[in-house]
Design a protein around this nucleic acid. Structure first.
Lengths: 150, 150
DNA sequence: TTTACTATTGATAATGATTTTCATTATGCA
DNA sequence: TGCATAATGAAAATCATTATCAATAGTAAA
């Protein structure tokens, strides 16, 4: 875990260096704080959390850094159609997709090798070089199903 | 084609009636215009197109109607992570997903029975009642790959 | 057909998320 | 140490979308 932390720090520093950008206190704090989150957070939510540690941190810095982290492959941008982007750390490079409850927002992460293969096959068939994908399944979780049936 | 046109009109009218809402000239025009589009359009783009026919149509009406059409199952909302929602007519109820070129925006529609089945199985496994999903594959189309290699 | 009711519209203001601007501050290297 | 460059935070700007509200139009009953 400490090792993993170090890794993303190193990855980020190197990513920044590549384009003559610098590691800063703010960027380090943002990275560290993102990695601590258990749930997918919006930039705004992360900003609120960060302010507890660094009272002076700015809105723009958070948004800017999240973009950088996404470019560096350290964070993943998730769009559940809520109007704002959510982020999740992608530290160990374990890609996965999401099953989201349309009622309570609770969500489950999953990975399906078979689907990934099929996606690749589809891209290839159409002459596309696949870079990424987003797949969200929307439904009602068991708890919310129960609530409704009452 | 004329028949299909009539169908969506009928579906929309019935959908509206169900909730004591009315079919209007504007709503009819918006539906007709949406169905004519070859590409996925944003509400803003559709508004620009509509203004050519009805100079007095309002922004809000377009946004409102698109929401209604989506609810009625006549239009599908697509989110390619651009910051605005795109719409496509879903007239013949043929669900499909998208393969999008990250460079030029060109996109291909596809449908894969196998993936759909796997998605259902995943939802079921987690106790979710699946309602919908969005799946976008992002890559570089063959044309853009060529351009880059030059 | 008129009336009375209710839904719809368009203009405009408001909102929310994100980005830009810009003066100030911090950092890295010659 | 000092300059050149990058980063920051505050505030303004932007962009997509939604809410407000007075004016208009459609509907159904009298």
């Amino acid at each position: 875990m400490a090792a993993k932390q170090k890794d993303t720090y190193k990855i980020f520093t190197e990513f920044l260096a590549e384009q003559k950008q610098r590691m800063t206190n703010q960027r380090e704090l943002i990275l560290k704080t993102l990695c601590k989150q258990k749930k997918h957070v919006t930039a705004e939510q992360l900003y609120e959390i960060l302010k507890k540690t660094d009272k002076s941190i700015g809105h723009a810095t958070v948004y800017r850094t999240m973009k950088l982290l996404a470019e560096a492959g350290i964070a993943r941008e998730l769009n559940f159609g809520e109007g704002s982007v959510r982020y999740e750390p992608d530290t160990d490079n374990t890609h996965h997709d999401h099953l989201v409850c349309v009622d309570c927002g609770e969500n489950v992460e999953f990975f399906d090798e078979e689907i990934e293969k099929l996606q690749n096959a589809i891209a290839e068939k159409h002459g596309y070089k696949l870079q990424d994908h987003s797949m969200n399944l929307y439904g009602t979780c068991s708890k919310c199903q129960e609530k409704k049936s009452n």
